[in-house]
C-alpha cells in the first residue's frame, strides 16, 4: 500500500514539466526515504535524478519498496488536470497495475481521482559516486535559463569555463560567436540573486546546448541553480526543491576524439 499526500501539489506538476521533455518512460521508486526517480534520455547522454523526501509529504505511507513504471507524458496529462492550489495524493495498492492521482481543492469542495495504467520498464540504475568538483557555480536559475536560450540561437554547443575571474559561457556558429561572463556577485539584496563561484582549480568543458536547455524546464522549481564541474566528469545541474529534495541533471561532456 502506497499513499503519499502532498499539500503543495503544484510541486509535483512542476517536477513533471521539468523531466518529461528529457525522458519518455521511467520508474518512480518509492521507499521509506522518499519518492525518487533516476532515468537517462534515449541517447544516454543525460541523466535525471529526482528525490522528494518522505518528510516533505504531509502524509507518507509506503509499506514496502515499490517501483512504478510510468509514461511521463501521460503523468503530465493527468497532473495538468489538477488545479495549481490542489492537494495531490498518489495511491497504489501492492501488486496493482495502476496508480491513482487524487486532487483535492484547497477548501475540499472538489475531489477528483484519476487512475493511470502502469507499465513495465526495463531500466538500469546507475551508481553515481560522490565526487569533489573542481568548480561549483551557484546563480539565479532564470539567469542560467536565459544564457542557455540566448546561446542556442547562435550555436549548438557551449564551452563553460570557470576561472577566478568568473564563469564564461561561449558558443560559436555559422553567424558568429558569443561569450557571456558572469562574475561572482555576492553583494545583492537577496541571496537568491547572487552568483557564487567556489573554485578549487580552473576548469573548462564543452556541452550540447539542447540538453542544457531541456534542464532549464526545472527553473520554476527553484530560484537558484548550481552547476558542478570537473574535467573528467559529467556536469551536474541541480535545482533544489525547497524542504523536499532536488532535481539533478547529469550531462556527459563533448570530448576530444
Amino acid at each position: 500500500m502506497l499513499e503519499l499526500r502532498l499539500v503543495q501539489g503544484s510541486l509535483l506538476k512542476k517536477v513533471l514539466e521539468a523531466i518529461k521533455e528529457l525522458v519518455t518512460d521511467a520508474n518512480f521508486d518509492c521507499s521509506a526515504t522518499g519518492f525518487s526517480l533516476q532515468a537517462m534520455d534515449s541517447s544516454h547522454v543525460a541523466l535525471v535524478a529526482l528525490l522528494l523526501r518522505s518528510e516533505g509529504f504531509e502524509h507518507y505511507r509506503c509499506d514496502r519498496n515499490l517501483s512504478m513504471g510510468m509514461n511521463l507524458g501521460n503523468v503530465s496529462k493527468m497532473l495538468r488536470c489538477a488545479g495549481s492550489d490542489d492537494i495531490i495524493t498518489i495511491k497504489a495498492d501492492d501488486g496493482s497495475d495502476t496508480v491513482t492521482f487524487m486532487f483535492e481543492s484547497p477548501n475540499q469542495d472538489k475531489i477528483a481521482d484519476f487512475e493511470m495504467k502502469l507499465m513495465d520498464i526495463d531500466s538500469e540504475h546507475l551508481g553515481i559516486p560522490d565526487a569533489e568538483y573542481q568548480a561549483i557555480v551557484r546563480m539565479p536559475s532564470g539567469e542560467f535559463a536565459r544564457i542557455c536560450k540566448d546561446l542556442s540561437s547562435i550555436g549548438d554547443t557551449v564551452i563553460i569555463s570557470v576561472t577566478k575571474e568568473g564563469v564564461k559561457f561561449s558558443t560559436a556558429g555559422d553567424i558568429g560567436t558569443a561569450n557571456i561572463v558572469c562574475r561572482q556577485n555576492k553583494t545583492v539584496d537577496k541571496p537568491e540573486e547572487a552568483t557564487v563561484i567556489e573554485m578549487q582549480e580552473p576548469v573548462s568543458l564543452t556541452f550540447a546546448l539542447r540538453y542544457l536547455n531541456s534542464f532549464t524546464k526545472a527553473t520554476p522549481l527553484s530560484e537558484t541553480v548550481s552547476i558542478s564541474l570537473s574535467s573528467d566528469l559529467p556536469v551536474v545541474v541541480e535545482y533544489k526543491i525547497a524542504d523536499m529534495g532536488y532535481v539533478r541533471y547529469y550531462l556527459a561532456p563533448k570530448i576530444e576524439e
Binding site: L126, P129, L233, Y250
Partner: peptide, 14 residues
C-alpha cells in the same frame, strides 16, 4: 572535433 560522450562511460550500473 569533439565527440559526444555518454553517461554510461562515467557511471556504471549498481
Amino acid at each position: 572535433v569533439r565527440k559526444q560522450s555518454q553517461i554510461t562511460t562515467f557511471f556504471s550500473p549498481g
